[in-house]
Design a binder for these strands. Structure first.
Length: 467
RNA sequence: GGCGGCAUAGCCAAGUGGUAAGGCACGGGUCUGCAAAACCCUUAUCCCCCGGUUCGAAUCCGGGUGCCGCCUCCA
């Protein structure tokens, strides 16, 4: 059994064969830090975090790098509007990025290099490209000559000819060719800048990733990932730069996540349908957002709205309440034995199914449906009169295991109940014993208003907090 | 104009040749003092439309229709 993944470069599912046995070098294009991230930015963060966790789960030693673009036109513009220095703006939104993604269960990368900290490498990279004849200086700017790289367009299957005839390509004044793109941009008056052989300026957008990949991961890496929209021109340009310089393939596998849409439209400022992560997680638990995203395959377009989040929440609660029920049963009933082998076998099968689904291009949607199937089996087991601690534990362990791979919390937090609530619950137990059901119901309603839900089970009354 | 994606039940969403997963919502039943949770049953004769290939297609091919995106440093 091995992992297969869809490679955007070949447009086929391919078997994952790492460059180095047991190791995966992975790079994900990170954000330009000029504002708070929106729900669309959250998708690559979440899905590639899932990919990373799954690879680790399958025993790979994953080295994961994701950059921050901390200087560029948009940040300069934002800084001007905020009347702040560029580094301060970048710093603030890097902090915000970590806050938002951490809430969404995204693990930090092994390295988060920044453009401003990679300047010497970027400059070296550009110099080398010029030396090799793939780039040229033009009045303080440096451009990559696309026609010098014969495979230009291979990722996005664009032909240079067609691109040239495209109506939207504009001819920059200093460019030799309309398809050439900037490696280095001369600083305008008063702009933040760095010294270079071509005068003061800053890097173009694409060069940073090429330089960082080379510096931290090497000339060829296993997986290069990012949003679908980055395929062209960003990734195409990265390939051109890196492969022109290194003379070898930049990445074996390219992965691109699908778009989040709002009512089947792209999010955009002009449509006013921007949903910021920090706003949505005020209203909905962040793990619900993560669970929602993982319920779709990462390459599919995914529609987003609050009702959909609400139904994801109900689904997640189903998993959580089953796990809580298993734990309650384990804690409050004796080991009664009963049939073991048959149930243990079912649990094992589900675990194997989960791996099978995830091995197939990280199909977390199917992975989660296997989890739901497992939950159903667990619930059936809980209906049995006799239960064995061993089997209960096996269920809990396996559900936790799968939950951990996807990083979705599959149990609610253990909470200390306060004295007042405890007294009320005790009083209700007494009332029920005495068949004083009106008092019992009264107490249940009272607690419900405080967000405490009571459930009477054969193993006693249990409570949980409303989510 | 070029490139690409999507179209499956009320909603969301898997499935890429063997006869429609899963979730949410809805209805009926069981359990319960009543609930809650859970379980069982029911819910797409059919996968945008029209042709074709095949013993057999949601799945492959051809042609349409609709929606979305990239070709603007937008994930």
């Amino acid at each position: 059994m091995s992992i297969h993944l869809y490679n955007s470069l070949t447009r086929k599912k391919e078997k994952l064969v790492p460059l180095q046995e047991g190791k995966i070098k992975m790079y994900v294009c990170g954000p330009t830090v000029y504002n708070n991230i929106h729900i669309g930015n959250a998708r690559p963060a979440i899905v590639f975090d899932m990919v990373r966790r799954y690879l680790e789960y399958r025993g790979y030693d994953v080295f994961f790098v994701s950059n921050f673009t901390d200087v560029d036109d948009k940040i300069i513009k934002a800084a001007r509007e905020l009347k702040e220095e560029v580094p301060k703006v970048a710093e603030r939104f890097i902090h915000a990025y970590f806050q938002d993604t951490e809430a969404l269960g995204v693990k930090k990368a092994d390295l988060h290099p920044r453009v401003t900290e990679t300047m010497p490498d970027i400059i070296q990279f550009i110099e080398a490209l010029i030396q090799k004849g793939y780039a040229y200086e033009a009045e303080g700017d440096v451009y990559f000559s696309t026609k010098s790289f014969k495979e230009y367009g291979k990722l996005s299957s664009q032909s240079i000819h067609e691109l040239l005839s495209g109506a939207r390509v504009e001819i920059g004044e200093k460019k030799q060719d309309p398809l050439d793109f900037a490696l280095w941009k001369q600083a305008k008056e008063g702009e933040i800048s760095w010294d270079s052989p071509w005068g003061k300026g800053r890097p173009g957008w694409h060069i940073e990733c090429s330089a960082m990949v080379k510096k931290y991961l090497g000339d060829t890496i296993d997986i290069h990932a990012g949003g679908q929209d980055l395929a062209f021109p960003h990734h195409e340009n990265e390939i051109a730069q890196s492969e022109a310089l290194n003379g070898q393939e930049m990445a074996k596998y390219w992965m691109h996540n699908g778009y989040i849409q709002i009512n089947n439209e792209k999010m955009s400022k002009s449509l006013g349908n921007f949903v910021l992560v920090k706003d949505i997680i005020k209203k909905h638990r962040p793990e619900v957002v993560r669970f929602f995203m993982l319920q779709a395959h990462y390459r599919s377009p995914l529609n987003f709205n609050e009702e959909l989040l609400e139904s994801a929440k109900n689904g997640l609660e189903r998993i959580q309440s089953t796990t809580d029920n298993l734990k309650h049963r384990l804690a409050h009933s004796a080991d009664l034995g009963g049939e073991k082998e048959e149930w243990a076998e079912k649990v094992k099968e589900h675990k194997a199914d989960f791996i099978k689904e995830m091995d197939d291009d990280f199909n977390s949607a199917n992975g989660i449906s296997v989890l739901f199937d497992l939950v159903k089996e667990a619930n059936k087991y809980l209906q049995e009169q006799q239960s064995s601690k061993e089997v209960l534990q096996f269920f809990i362990h396996t559900i936790r295991d799968i939950g951990a791979v996807l990083d979705i919390p599959i149990e609610t937090e253990e909470e200390i109940m306060d004295a007042e609530i405890e007294t009320l619950i005790q009083e209700r137990i007494e009332a029920r014993k005495n068949r004083n059901f009106s008092r019992a119901d009264e107490i249940r309603d009272m607690l419900k208003e405080k967000g405490i839900i009571l459930e009477d089970t054969p193993q006693g009354t249990r409570w949980k907090r409303e989510q």
